[in-house]
Design a protein around this nucleic acid. Structure first.
Lengths: 252, 252
DNA sequence: TTAGTTATTGTCAAAGTGACGATAACCCTG
DNA sequence: CAGGGTTATCGTCACTTTGACAATAACTAA
């Protein structure tokens, strides 16, 4: 009803880039990996103000010729030193954070992404600080969310990322993206336990999950004594009926 | 590992807004409403190039002091002439579209939003073109997705919006946001039928949905002959176990 | 009053669930 | 190489949920 209400599409026809306030477009990454029964997130420590010395999600600018997802993959490699050529990684868009005051210096709009790194569940992928000075390290997610504060609105973004992953694991096989291509049901259950912060009963988990996986016919070498487990791969399928995430105590 | 790999947060400390290519930040809206057993989406017809005369989602620029969600609500009012003061409306972020070539003229990043308008299921909210020249009108979604093409990547955005709504209806009471505050189970089932493009059996739907709703104690006047139906309100709750969306034929 | 229409409840066989026990296959130690 | 510890997988059982559909109840219109 004001002059502003002119349609954006119409407006663009006569739009001069210089007319509008600059918006910096960035990506932030919630990078998850599982070890030793715990879900971990990759964080960097900030070197400069604001939020100097605080922990923050890795991220960076979206280049002029990139999509946000391309920028996310590039920044993941650059800021953590991960070799994405060999390491399977799942990247998906999470949400976009646009609060006009979320960065005190200027308008920064960040497209947050969720990245899942495959591990064998024992050793975290080695991450090192990129070419910048900030140090990169893994932090246990559930512990972090209870105690620590992160720079900017990154606490919220991390919480949203965890919520997305936890929710999607109810109706999809996305948890397998945190494991090698071939994995056992016990490994997969360990991922569920780590993300949901619970302890699922093994027998029932097997019964419900197995029909959604593909049996490779191979068996895992029983490293620790015990029967060898069948190795599965996970087709990118929907799980029906979905697995229920226990609300408080394990067991609905 | 090039100079670009410098951390974004670090980089911002010495960032000069003029240094970077301009990014136009916009919102696009997928506005849904149900009538007569069909899901409808609000579209405007473009007046100028590119995509002149094509159908497009309503949208517009994000102002310098607004969040994307605030801009979405404002544009919804401005472009469709809807009075949001009286009409209950649900708005949530959908996804952000960042392809560098999605607008041929310049870099336009659009934060798409899903908006659900409450109707009694019989009459669509009157929408009129805003102050711009474009005409706004309702279009049946399922028919549209099969046939027509939309401007820019709006076909994809619409598809994503429908997918989000359809998915969320499995495990939440969000479908009730397409109905007045108080509604009958038959009205709610009509929403499911319209969005999922299916026909759910009435008896079983009642059995599964009722425990998640709040009975007002009131009854609807049976307008068309038949027993009066109980009026419910929907607390913003999770549905557990979720409703299964039939894959092909009605009935799992 | 009666026929038509609709909401809600009931029924029943089949499938799914949580809890947990049984079995089998492996490793390690002695 | 025998036996104990460990682990994966399958089986069982009482209980719940499901899909399909029938039955009943409550209204309107004629």
């Amino acid at each position: 009803m004001t002059a502003d209400s002119q349609s954006a599409r119409e407006f663009l026809d006569s739009y001069d880039p210089g007319d509008y306030p600059a918006v910096a477009l960035t990506v932030d990454l919630v990078v998850f990996a599982v070890t030793n029964g715990a879900l971990n997130v990759a964080l960097v420590r900030r070197g400069g103000h604001p939020f100097k010395d605080a922990l923050a999600l890795p991220g960076g600018f979206v280049g002029p010729e990139e999509s946000a997802e391309q920028a996310a993959v590039r920044e993941l490699a650059e800021e953590t030193g991960l070799d994405l050529g060999s390491l399977p990684v799942h990247v998906e868009q999470l949400a976009t954070y646009t609060g006009p005051k979320r960065d005190p210096r200027m308008r920064v709009v960040s497209v947050a992404h969720l990245a899942l790194l495959a591990t064998d569940g024992r050793v975290l992928p080695g991450i090192a600080a990129g070419s910048d000075a900030a140090a990169a390290a893994w932090h246990p997610v559930h512990h972090l969310l209870r105690s620590s504060d992160l720079a900017f609105d990154h606490h919220q973004i991390l919480q949203d990322g965890l919520g997305r992953l936890a929710g999607k694991m109810e109706y999809s096989t996305v948890a397998a993206r945190l494991l090698p291509n071939e994995f056992t049901l016990t490994q997969l259950r360990a991922v569920y336990d780590a993300v949901w912060d619970t302890t699922l009963p093994a027998g029932n988990f097997t019964r419900k999950m197995m029909p959604h996986l593909t049996d490779t016919g191979r068996k895992s070498r029983a490293a620790t004594g015990g029967a060898p487990a069948a190795l599965f791969t996970a087709p990118d399928r929907h799980i029906h009926p979905p697995l229920a995430k226990p609300t408080t105590s394990p067991g609905r």
